[in-house]
Amino acid sequence: MTQTAITPLLEVNQLTKRFPLRRSLALWREPPAVRAVEQVSFQINEGATYGLVGESGSGKSTIARLVLLLEKPTAGEVRFAGESIFPMRGRPLRAYRSRVQAVFQDPSSSFSPRMRVSEILGELPMLHQGLRGQARRERVSGLLELVGLPPAYAGRFPHEFSGGQRQRLAIARAISTNPRMLVLDEPVSALDVSIRAQVLNLLADLQQQLGLSYLLIAHDLAIVQQVSDMIGVLYLGHLVEECPSEELTAQPLHPYTRALLSAVPVPDPARRAKALPLQGEIPSALDPPPGCVFHTRCPLALPRCAAEEPPLITVAPHHQVACHLVPGQVSP
């Protein structure tokens, strides 16, 4: 493998986010904190999709919010096109915001109900590119066409659209600044099955047409696998496994990844789950277990797992896993 000098578009290095609870009277003591994200590192290449999967409380949305500069990190850095984003101020910050845009889960709460589509989609091109008048109107029709909506809808209000169409609008607004990367936080979870495929296909088309990179956050493994190039599996704020999308189902290594995969209900009655479901629940991020964070639910845990935190090790090109049993005898 040649380690060519392609700098990744987004580089997340040892990112950590803790939310401290209120300080106790003992001021010299460290206040308790929710450990949302613990030393997570990954990279997204130009034009690629990186999928982050995990259950609720895994820290996946916190990572999205950090990348979008909606939260400040406790430690670690994020580099976009080589530039560290957290110290950015002024002009570089504005440029970053226009280059990295977001689409969230609930399209109905991401628009002002009093703005027409023309204002919603025209606002950012006006602010970032100074488009006005006819140029701005043309940009709005162009955006609507890109996401598969009739340009005649420019005069409508958000409530006049269905859920799927509103998500198309959210995507149109996100690409209105000519971004290089979109952060997609559960972009299809709120949509009906028949509409999900439409939106996922649209995202794939736009990626091709515009050369976008995606950071996709979702809990649905099948969807993440369908659209991602690389996948990171998060558990209680820790990245426990990272691999190319095809290897996730072919060669999952971490016991949590395996448990997660076997818990996904496959839409085929001939392939009914045989394995017993994973026992227990995700522990509190206020008081995460020592050692490997997964050891309390791991069917294969050894005494060592409760004592020592396993490092993320590379087991194959682009395949990393944090488990004491890998490489070794991780067989079900």
Partner: peptide
């Protein structure tokens, strides 16, 4: 139209 885990990446119906 439902993505199936482990299936080859394809355009969804």
């Amino acid at each position: 139209s439902v993505p199936v885990l482990g299936a080859k990446r394809r355009r969804l119906y």
